[in-house]
């Protein structure tokens, strides 16, 4: 864990350097369980030393960008992983935040561990201690100690990441001596698996998954791109878009609202699925729409600050759309 100390020191010194230019820094601090780190909002110099960066920093802090930009006077510093910076780029591209207001402090990333994968593997909800090494993860639970192979427990997005060492946009880049070393995986593998099933099977798959949803709206509220959560049409009475009776069908419709409102906007941080208390695989729903948008319009969100979201523009001749003739 020497490496860790190294990167923490670098982070702290960089943040101290630029602290005069910002009135608030959003970063990671120690969490209350060995599995998690905690986001922290730092507005006093003395607290900077609490900042950390390690393989558990899974939260996408860009989730605070929009709200804070409305609230905080002065500039905001944000500790970001390279993939998190996509959210900032996309928010800027849509004119939801101003680029000048943010100091993007991007940290080189060696991959992030998805604690939910660990919990699933050990079949437990709570752990006693955790030590993440380069090759092995040592985890202790009430059943005793277990050693897991680190390479299998990265967050899904890390397996197709190609920006871990060169973020698309940053103001301060903190290089990490640790590099991302994972075997690349096909981003759409799980989607293909599902699509291989019959239409009825796909239907029942979602029926079962979303039948578990408790409508806590954590998925919606954690999303950096869903800036309209307080005005969400889910809560409307007139028109009544959606019943509050949380049946599988209604829950699916809730996810469809998310999918449609994020079409071509979702930056694939995977936060929605991470925070779901019922472990529903909603990330697939988002990814699929992104795949469609990419195939139709050749667009991925969060890459280019000057590009418009495809659904907010059009071409008179669409090369990739083949209109269906019914006559």
């Amino acid at each position: 864990m020497n490496q860790n100390r190294n990167i923490n020191e670098k982070l702290i010194s960089k943040v101290s350097e630029i602290f005069g230019q910002v009135s608030l820094v959003v970063g990671y601090c120690r969490g209350n369980s060995p599995l998690k780190v905690s986001p922290c909002l730092i507005d006093e110099k003395k607290d900077i030393s609490n900042l950390i960066f390690n393989k558990l920093c899974i939260n996408n802090l860009a989730t605070y960008a929009y709200k804070l930009s409305k609230k905080v006077e002065g500039n905001i510093g944000m500790v970001l992983k390279p993939c998190d910076s996509k959210a900032i780029i996309q928010l800027c591209a849509e004119g939801l935040i101003e680029r000048e207001k943010f100091r993007m402090i991007t940290v080189g990333c060696s991959g992030i561990i998805d604690y939910k994968k660990i919990l699933k593997e050990i079949g437990r909800q709570r752990i006693i201690s955790l030590d993440i090494g380069k090759d092995n993860i040592e985890v202790e639970t009430i059943d005793g100690k277990k050693s897991l192979s680190t390479k299998n427990f990265y967050a899904e997005k890390c397996y197709w990441c190609d920006i871990s060492d060169n973020p698309l946009e940053s103001d301060v880049f903190i290089e990490n001596d640790d590099k991302l070393e994972v075997e690349k995986k096909d981003k759409y593998a799980d989607i293909k698996d599902l699509e291989n099933l019959s239409i009825e099977e796909i239907y029942s798959y979602w029926q079962e998954e979303l039948g578990r949803c408790i409508r806590c709206y954590a998925c919606r509220n954690v999303c950096p791109m869903e800036v309209c959560q307080d005005q969400c049409i889910v809560h409307l009475d007139y028109p009544n878009w959606e019943s509050q009776m949380a049946t599988a069908e209604e829950n699916k419709f809730f996810q469809m609202i998310r999918v449609m409102h994020l079409a071509g906007r979702c930056v694939e941080c995977g936060e929605c699925e991470r925070v779901c208390p019922q472990n529903i695989s909603i990330f697939k729903l988002m990814k699929k729409m992104n795949q469609v948008i990419d195939e139709l319009f050749g667009f991925s969100a969060g890459i280019d600050i000057s590009q418009k979201t495809p659904l907010l523009t059009y071409k008179t001749i669409e090369e990739n759309i083949e209109e269906e003739k019914l006559t």
Binding site: I191, I202, Y203, W206, Q207, K252, M256, M260, V292, L296
Partner: peptide, 10 residues
């Protein structure tokens, strides 16, 4: 986009 998406939700 919607049309291409529909099969994915059954």
């Amino acid at each position: 986009a919607l049309k291409e998406y529909l099969p994915f939700i059954g």
